[in-house]
């Protein structure tokens, strides 16, 4: 390997390290709470559901972006181009969920969330696969008639988000130790 190739390999490694990222536990925990409350409302006061999601989804996205920027600044970097990817990905997912709500295709919301999180797991953060796979399994369980309680769906969903939060905290601590 030439001196120049060695240098390029070093720079590639530095750039990869700067982007090796396992998410922010606080964001997963936030969405665990939002989703659990949302499904609990659907169980006990269904008429409030649409209004709840109309408000909580955009507010949740703004809070998530704020947590991400604040944590990045604490880490020592600002204005990552990766932030835009998250914004477009989840912005589009929320838009599709609103279409499902508008057309009253409530069941397909879980499928949209499942697809959104599975793709995010492949392209953004691996841990998002946990939430994605769980959403698809919940969708199938409801479709097969094995689950018919919104509260149970919300609880399982929240467990998925909190498991991802735990995984994220653990992996981030490991990378900090290695550094």
């Amino acid at each position: 390997m030439s001196h120049r190739d060695e240098n390029l390999a070093y720079i590639k490694k530095v750039l990869e390290d700067s982007a090796s990222f396992n998410g922010y536990p606080a964001i997963y925990a936030l969405w665990g709470c939002i989703v659990f409350i949302g499904y609990a409302i659907a169980e006990f006061q269904f008429s409030w559901s649409t209004m709840y999601w109309l408000v909580s989804a955009p507010v949740g996205m703004v809070i998530s972006a704020w947590i991400g920027m604040r944590s990045d600044k604490k880490l020592g970097q600002q204005g990552s181009k990766a932030g835009d990817k998250y914004l477009y990905h989840f912005g589009l997912m929320v838009a599709f969920i609103f279409i499902a709500v508008f057309t009253q295709e409530y069941r397909s919301i879980l499928l949209v969330i499942g697809l959104g999180y599975c793709l995010a797991g492949l392209h953004l953060e691996r841990l998002m696969l946990v939430v994605g796979i769980l959403s698809v399994l919940l969708y199938l369980a409801i479709h097969m008639g094995w689950v018919n309680s919104n509260l149970l769906v919300g609880a399982v969903f929240a467990i998925g988000f909190f498991a991802a939060a735990w995984g994220s905290a653990k992996l981030n601590a490991e990378s900090a130790e290695q550094a």
Binding site: S18, G76, Q77, Q78, G79, S80
Partner: peptide
């Protein structure tokens, strides 16, 4: 890749 980066 990042707009700003700290020394640390």
């Amino acid at each position: 890749r990042y707009d700003k980066m700290a020394f640390s």
